[in-house]
């Protein structure tokens, strides 16, 4: 009886267990506990939420291992952490800490503007951001076991996440309607491996779990993303940059489960106090847009 760790099934399977859930950004143990109590399926440990990274500027890096370990000790749910795009040593460090998932994230400042991390090299699974199907398939080809739409992190503006979900969904539907002999050109156009393109065309979905992220700030935002076909939701700045984090966190969890029931979403939306202030993505100068990082 030999036990094999880090197989594709074990990595992708971990993401399957998170489906229908909300993963919340937290910066300390206290917030992690609030998230767990609210029903989060996992927490993302990071030093600054995207809204603060945006406000303070500078280079954003992997979090302090001490801080990650404190969060691991505080909660029983999975703990994820972010590494910079292409920074495989940060990823090795996170793996050595025993985090449950690594987010190779455009929210941090990229370490490599050409290559992403070779994620097949790791026992720990990776989630990566994507704005379209080709990008999602390139990440899966590099070993990502979970994909999230990028959205525009730290804005509280859901429009980019919406655009990315529509784009990914639309491109999948287009592949499904193609003749098999048209898939070669489709793969060329998507700049994605033919085998993955064929798999998506046949199954009508990504081969890994698809979450959504970036700008989700209200229960209705979370429900909207589920209605667009997301398997679950990442909420970054939206919770702990709002007036009443515990209540808003629980409300977003409810709306994610019962996204089909407008009455539940309505009830969850009542009396939450102030949502995060937010920035319109359209007002962001192009160089400050995080979703454009990664390729």
């Amino acid at each position: 009886m030999s036990e094999v760790k880090g197989t594709g099934r074990v990595k992708r399977g971990m993401a399957e267990m998170l489906k229908g859930g909300v993963i919340m950004d937290v910066v300390n143990a206290e917030q992690a506990k609030i998230a767990e109590d609210a029903g989060a399926v996992a927490v993302m440990a990071l030093e600054r939420v995207p809204a603060d990274i945006r406000a303070q500027g500078g280079v954003a890096r992997m979090s302090d291992p001490d801080m990650i370990e404190k969060i691991q000790a505080a909660v029983s749910i999975p703990v994820m952490a972010k590494a910079r795009i292409g920074h495989f040593v940060e990823a090795q460090v996170l793996q050595s800490l025993g985090v449950d998932y690594i987010d190779e994230s455009e929210v941090l400042t990229p370490a490599d503007y050409e290559n992403h991390i070779d994620k097949w090299d790791f026992t720990i699974p990776f989630v990566c951001g994507a704005t379209n199907l080709g990008e999602a398939l390139r990440r899966i080809n590099e070993g990502a076991a979970m994909i999230r739409s990028k959205g525009e992190a730290g804005t509280g503006d859901v429009s980019n996440a919406m655009q990315h979900m529509r784009k990914i969904g639309g491109e999948i539907r287009r592949l499904s309607s193609m003749r098999e002999d048209e898939l070669y050109v489709a793969a060329k156009e998507l700049q994605a491996p033919y085998e993955l393109v064929k798999e998506v065309a046949q199954s009508g979905k990504l081969p890994v779990v698809l979450f959504t992220a970036g700008g989700i700030a209200t229960p209705a935002d979370a429900a909207l993303m589920m209605a667009m076909g997301a398997d679950g939701v990442f909420i970054g700045s939206g919770i702990f940059k709002s007036g009443n984090p515990a209540q808003r966190a629980a409300a977003c969890v409810k709306a994610t489960t019962f996204w089909q029931d407008a009455k539940v979403v309505a009830d969850a939306s009542r009396g939450l106090g102030e949502a995060m202030v937010g920035i319109n993505v359209a007002d962001l100068p192009a160089p400050h847009r995080l979703a454009d990082r990664g390729w």
Partner: peptide, 16 residues
Amino acid sequence: RRNAFGRQVDSFETDI
């Protein structure tokens, strides 16, 4: 016992 086999790095498949 929850998470008795460990964290995700310890997750595995086997034939039993």
